[in-house]
């Protein structure tokens, strides 16, 4: 069950970033192609090729009937959803940055207390936002506002906040529980995620030492 949730989370954010990239690629290509065909119309007309000009004009209007005005809006919506669920995934992979220079100088028991405090603070903040967001979405659902280009109901668009924050809250609690049990925190290890064979060990090791990576307390004693 949990593993299914993990998978869903990963598939969702990876698909969103891929889809958004492709969408912008398509809309730029489309815009550029329209410009080219329109230049063709003008060229044929000025050189007296009326038949070709009319043909180009037909294809121009054909191409333009593919309406991509909404692409920018959809990209933004997809990225906001990617950001909210990706932030939850980031808790699980330990990518969220903190200033740990001070607590790293404390003795292990105290440091453990601070790490727990940080995780619970994360759960508190995201839990509060989930509740506020749910309340906000509930109000929006009654206001019947829609997004300007796609005309999607705004409350569905804004649903990313309560859902993403609730998931993030759950992840913070999950990590806190794991930390209590084993004393370990998730590592953010680029090398592994990138999944490339050669030279990855070194790179992964490098990122492991980066402050972007929450310190594993057991490792810190070295």
């Amino acid at each position: 069950m949990l593993r299914l949730l993990d998978r869903l989370e990963e598939v969702l954010i990876a698909s969103l970033i891929a889809a958004a990239t492709l969408l912008i690629f398509l809309s730029v290509t489309h815009r550029y192609a329209l410009g080219l065909v329109a230049d063709g119309v003008a060229f044929f007309r000025s050189h007296g090729f009326d038949g070709l000009s009319a043909l180009a004009k037909t294809s121009y209007f054909g191409l333009r009937s593919v309406n991509l005005v909404w692409a920018q809006e959809l990209t933004i919506i997809m990225f906001v959803w990617m950001a909210k669920f990706g932030a939850a995934y980031g808790v699980r992979t330990g990518i969220h940055v903190g200033i740990d220079v001070v607590i790293n100088r404390l003795e292990p028991a105290k440091r453990k207390g601070f790490v727990l405090f940080g995780l619970l603070a994360g759960a508190l903040f995201t839990g509060t936002i989930a509740a506020l967001g749910a309340n906000f979405v509930w109000h929006m659902a009654h206001a019947s506002a829609i997004s300007p280009d796609l005309e999607l109901p705004m409350w569905i668009v804004y649903l990313a906040i309560p859902l993403g924050s609730a998931l993030m809250c759950f992840r913070f609690l999950q990590v806190a529980l794991g930390f209590l049990r084993t004393g370990e925190l998730p590592h953010h290890d680029h090398g592994h995620v990138d999944g490339l064979e050669d030279g990855v060990e070194e790179v992964g090791e490098a990122i492991l030492h980066s402050p972007l990576t929450p310190r594993d307390l057991t490792e810190k004693d070295k």
Partner: peptide, 11 residues
């Protein structure tokens, strides 16, 4: 206007 990319606000 043929082929001109014209900026509008969402509407």
């Amino acid at each position: 206007f043929l082929g001109l990319k014209m900026r509008i606000q969402s509407s």
